[in-house]
């Protein structure tokens, strides 16, 4: 048995491109997650974070399709499961929390009933038992007045409370892995702080692994154990939280960190990354970051940089980086 709960190897997911070629918006992504570990997937908008997550759940919308690669959950090959078996895995062994709780909650059903339904979909329990478990879950995600909230409709609840309900729902089936796609992006900072601290407490209490998708490096620092930085469909840097944040190896990671406005001194220009993420059809041939990189070399435009190890746990795909071995 492997030490990893989730093993993603060379995952490729594509959408129809402009011509006859398909655009590989996820192009050879690999990462592993240990039981109880939080892995962050971070990068700018359009880098392929959500499509990666949807691929793991086999929920890529058509005409998108997973082309190749493997995804093992607890040793089980997710990509070759039958549709009914996959449905069981989804929401049972892995569940998902989305950015916009409103789109995933049914507006005309009381939130308590929605969680009860989710439980009974996966477990053969009475409504009464499911309801008392829902109440437990509401307490666990620290919803104030949980008995009252069971009967509330989504639109009666604030954004923060709705996100707590979503978390309760994601926990309902005691999953081993939660995929959280921008779980706090739509929230105010004060509410975000509450949700982040809740997620951390729960993750420690329940020892659930989390794939945390976000574009916010501050959120990453709060929750992650390890970080994968994604740019234009590929992972360009991966390492322990501390390694990546304190000692970023890839010019892209450095650019992201430096452009955080909190670091700028008033009056001085902020460090920026020039340009923007190109559309998948325009992704460069060699290093995909070469059109924006401040450290670009000739070789970058023609050759895809190989992974270079900076430590046992930290690696970077960049021609300008010297490997340590």
């Amino acid at each position: 048995m492997s030490e990893f709960l989730l093993e993603v190897q060379d995952l490729v997911t594509s959408f129809p491109g402009s011509g006859s070629e398909r655009a590989r918006v996820v192009d050879g992504v690999s990462f592993n997650i240990r039981p109880g570990e939080v892995m962050a997937l971070v990068g700018e908008s359009g880098c392929g974070k959500s499509v990666s997550a949807l691929s793991l759940l086999r929920l890529v919308p058509k005409p998108g399709a997973i082309e190749s690669g493997s995804v093992l959950l607890d040793g089980k090959d997710i990509l070759s499961l039958s549709v009914p078996d996959m449905r069981k895995v989804r929401g049972h062994e892995m569940s998902m929390i989305f950015q916009e709780p409103m789109t995933s909650l049914n507006p005309v059903v009381r939130v308590g009933d929605q969680v009860v339904e989710a439980i009974r979909l996966h477990e053969d329990v009475s409504v009464k038992a499911a309801r008392s478990r829902t109440l437990e879950l509401f307490k666990q995600v620290r919803i104030p007045d949980p008995e009252v909230r069971l009967d509330a409709y989504p639109h009666h609840l604030s954004g923060g409370l709705k996100q707590r309900i979503m978390i309760a729902m994601a926990l309902a089936t005691r999953p081993k892995l939660i995929i959280a796609d921008e779980p706090t992006t739509a929230l105010d900072v004060t509410i975000q702080a509450q949700i982040l601290s809740l997620l951390r407490q729960l993750q420690q209490e329940l020892d659930t692994a989390v794939l945390l998708i976000t574009h916010d490096l501050g959120v990453v620092n709060e929750l992650a154990d390890r970080i994968s930085v994604m740019y234009a469909g590929r992972i360009v840097e991966q390492g322990d939280r501390r390694e990546v944040l304190a000692n970023p190896g890839h010019p892209y990671t450095r650019g992201l960190l430096r452009s955080m406005p909190g670091l700028g001194r008033p009056g001085e220009p902020l460090a920026e990354i020039s340009g923007m993420v190109p559309a998948p059809a325009d992704w460069p041939r060699g290093c995909r970051f070469c059109t924006r990189c401040s450290e670009v070399l000739d070789i970058c435009e023609s050759e895809v940089p190989a992974r270079r190890r900076l430590s046992l746990t930290h690696h970077v795909a960049c021609h300008a980086v010297e490997a340590t071995e």
Binding site: D188, V189, G218, V219, N221, E222, L245, G262
Partner: peptide
């Protein structure tokens, strides 16, 4: 105090007030 920092040595936000607006 609710703004998350990117300093790896500073982690653990201070949730100084509960509840919603």
């Amino acid at each position: 105090s609710a703004i998350p920092s990117i300093d790896p040595d500073r982690r653990g936000l201070d949730v100084s007030f509960e509840g919603d607006v």
